[in-house]
């Protein structure tokens, strides 16, 4: 346990698995009070039990539910200091030639509109903090914001879009005189349960694992805890002058070409 985030109240969307769940645990460990959202109630209850965080069943694309999420946090603790806009998905994605309109709209609803709603509601909540408008918002983008994938057009587009969203929101908060910082992080391939299950269910798991690991010159995937550590840093007062930034955390996957 550290006290780096003592006294702070955090919200993590998509907190029931992967990077979100890892971040719930890390923020708790650093002393924050944490609320997290997601669809999976069983996982939500389990993580809440393990970490002492509070689960709220909510999908980021559920517009009407947002007021209640923020009200629950404010009623309980009267403030919001950190928001991690993490929820995202790639179900229904494909190439630009093949993707269905439903697939495209579904991914935009979560990865883009859902993130916008998270940032919007977080700013409105942080604006009313008892000690004035303060806070830190972190958007989970992806290295694919800078290096697009041909067979995941909607994922690539939405992850690029939310980097611009982070910058726009950061400038807006500055213009309003709010001490609310907004940044995006761009992880490489991270070994989440989703990826582990994909590997395990593949007919050639070793080759698939090597394929993912080989995307980084470090020849390994990132760990959930490594991404969570960056979120914790950006959420803390140590990052007090970092706003409008996009931080790549990908084991040099996008730093250049690996050579022969």
């Amino acid at each position: 346990m550290t006290e780096r985030l003592a006294g702070k109240v955090a919200l993590v969307t998509g907190g029931t698995s992967g990077i979100g769940a890892g971040t719930v645990a890390r923020l708790r460990n650093d002393g924050a009070q944490v609320f997290f959202t997601g669809r999976n109630e069983d996982a939500g209850r389990e993580i809440a039990g393990q970490t002492g965080a509070t689960f709220i069943r909510h999908e980021v694309s559920d517009v009407d539910g947002w007021a209640d999420v923020i009200a629950q946090i404010r009623d309980a603790l009267g403030r919001l200091d950190i928001a991690f806009a993490n929820a995202g998905m790639e179900r229904g994605d494909g190439s630009v030639e093949d993707i269905s309109l439903d697939g495209w709209n579904g991914i935009l609803a979560v990865n883009q509109t859902g993130v916008m709603l998270t940032v919007q509601h977080a700013i409105r909540a942080m604006r009313d903090n008892p000690d004035g408008p303060t806070g830190s918002i972190i958007i989970n983008s992806s290295m694919n914001a800078n290096r697009a994938m041909g067979n995941f057009v909607a994922y690539s587009v939405t992850k690029a879009a939310v980097v611009a969203l982070a910058k726009s929101a950061a400038i807006h908060c500055g213009n309003q005189g709010y001490k609310i910082r907004v940044n995006a992080i761009l992880p490489g391939v991270v070994e989440t349960a989703l990826i582990s299950n994909l590997i395990a269910s593949n007919e050639n798991p070793d080759a698939m694992r090597a394929g993912y690991a080989g995307m980084s010159p470090l020849k390994r995937m990132g760990e959930v805890e490594e991404i969570a550590a960056l979120v914790s840093f950006l959420g803390s007062d140590e990052a007090a002058f970092i706003s409008g930034a996009d931080l790549t955390i990908d084991g040099a996957s996008t730093a250049g070409m690996m050579g022969l």
């Binding site: 470090l218 970092i242 930034a245 931080l247 084991g251 250049g256």
Partner: peptide, 27 residues
């Protein structure tokens, strides 16, 4: 604080990256 973060174990998957600390100037 940014330098110390990158120097330490919390940044174990960060390499080849850049940390902009500019209060939003280049955004």
């Amino acid at each position: 604080a940014g330098i110390a973060f990158l120097a330490g174990p919390d940044a174990s998957y960060m390499t080849g990256s850049e940390m902009v600390i500019d209060g939003g100037w280049t955004a």
